[in-house]
Amino acid sequence: MNEFTTRIKELRAARDMKQGELADLVGVRRETIIRLEKGLYNPSLKLAVDIARVFGCTVEEVFIFPEE
């Protein structure tokens, strides 16, 4: 499991966006979005930035790292 959680599912639901639609927007497969939402995959910096841009957020607002 990853050391961070993501708000992708929450942000997607707020915009009434399907996983497939988000996948098409950022140029990945739907399976990749599923894995990201479940925290099973570390995205590249480019993918993280692309997802954040789709939601109009910063990367830190999409990918939450626990406070040390």
């Binding site: 140029g27 990945v28 399976e31 990749t32």
Partner: peptide, 8 residues
Amino acid sequence: NEPDDELS
């Protein structure tokens, strides 16, 4: 054919 992405 669907192209590969970074995860695949």
